[in-house]
Amino acid sequence: MLQKQVEIILMRQLASYLTLPVFVVDPEGNLLYYNASAEPLLGRQFDEAGEMPIREWSTIFAPVDERGAPLPPDALPLAIALQKRRPAYRRIRITGLDGVPRELEVVAFPLEGQGRRFLGAVAIFYSVNAR
């Protein structure tokens, strides 16, 4: 067991108070935390599921672009934030494990701590359907 860096811990605390769905991932893309608002997307409560390897959670959504064309993993904002270490934005469509199709605006940004320690990334989802 490795204790998380304090920036990741504080990011989780903040996310746990937000109503927008939030994912927090480590530098490899493993899902460290998702808040209660994100649970319908993943179909499980975080307290039950815990952390998820990238191979497990990244295959859940089958994201497509606004015209319905499949999006390669590298085109997703979270992947760009991790690989290029810069913020990224995209509108995508997914069907969560709750079976509900969603059109989402996704913003992702890298988490870089003191001493240029790369800690992972955060993705925030906004449901266009909810407008």
């Binding site: 067991m1 490795l2 204790q3 998380k4 304090v6 811990i9 504080l10 989780r12 605390q13 903040l14 746990s16 108070y17």
Partner: peptide, 18 residues
């Protein structure tokens, strides 16, 4: 305990644990 409704969470998520 900042932001933790039922402190403590498990050790991995607790500042200063290590």
């Amino acid at each position: 305990a900042l932001g933790v409704p039922r402190f403590p969470l498990d050790a991995a998520w607790t500042s200063g644990y290590e």
